[in-house]
Amino acid sequence: MIENRRWLDILTHAVLILGVAIVAFPVWVALVASTHPAGSFATGHMPLLPGGHGWDNYSTVLGSGMRGAGSEPLWRMLINSTIMAVLITAGKIAISLTSAYAIVWFRFPLRVVCFWLIFITLMLPVEVRILPTFKVVADFGLLNSWVGLTLPLIASATATFLFRQFFMTLPDELVEAARIDGAGPMKFFRDILLPLSRTNIAALSVILFIYGWVQYLWPTLVTTDPKFYTVVMGIKRMVAVAEADPQWNFVMAAVVLAMLPPVLVVIFMQRLFVKGLIETEK
């Protein structure tokens, strides 16, 4: 017999609503702050109701930018961040898929050792090897370039591990059936493995896009040309103005605009994202 505990339902919904409110409150504050003039923050009090300067703030940030603070127009930085995130996502997915495919489906000496060498790189993120990586990029003349921005961030041991684990769940009979039908290694990879990996690719793409979008340290080191500035760099430059108070209305407008692309990616990819995380049988 299942008991109907109404008080328990009320408690769980109250906890859920409280959690949503805690998460959403900073977003609401940023949204409200982006609709007020700069003078609204001179007293040190943050308004909690929308103002009437939202259109002016957003058009200024997107169009002309805060030239006095050394910031470029935000539309250019949004495009740069999008290009960087897409290149990193596509590169990580491509390399991880092919490396996991080679480790699982090909028989060659030391293939297990090769996998563990890839897996060990989880202990060496770019922040740990920042100096030698920067020196290599600088020696090859890749500063202020898309290759220098994205190539050191493309390799992903996590994605390789996840694809390997998924490929290991597929039966060997699948390969035998493909071989009987005359499918070679590339045809098997293209026509069988890629369609089966669709949900995994979608789930990882969301995570990797956000990973590329929020990068700050590496773009700051390898980029001195304003045409390669990313949106995270732009927000930091808006806040770190010299001999002046930050114009928080413009900063918050930039923050809200910077949140939109990752949010849209999560919304449009939500079904495949959840399916790729929870699906265990193909």
Rank of each mutant, 00 (worst) to 15 (best):
M123L: 09
S64G: 09
W248E: 03
T224V: 06
E3L: 13
H53L: 09
I83N: 05
Q270T: 14
I130P: 02
R198L: 01
G91S: 05
S145E: 04
I83P: 07
D245Y: 07
L78Y: 04
F115S: 12
P219H: 06
S40K: 00
E127H: 10
K236N: 07
F167Y: 11
M259C: 14
I103V: 15
Q215A: 04
V214D: 09
G182N: 05
P26Q: 15
A102T: 13
M238L: 02
V32I: 07
F268D: 03
S145L: 11
P37F: 04
L110H: 15
K282V: 11
L110G: 14
T98F: 14
F166G: 09
V126C: 03
K275I: 11
E176C: 08
R107V: 08
T280V: 15
S205D: 02
Y216M: 02
A157K: 01
V23R: 05
F189C: 12
P246V: 03
V104F: 08
R271M: 10
G39C: 12
G54M: 08
L110Q: 11
F108H: 13
D56C: 06
T280A: 14
T230F: 01
I93T: 03
W116D: 10
G212I: 07
F134R: 00
I235T: 11
M66G: 04
E72H: 11
P152F: 00
V175G: 05
Y101P: 00
M1H: 07
V206L: 05
G19W: 07
S156K: 01
L143V: 05
M259N: 12
L277M: 03
L208G: 00
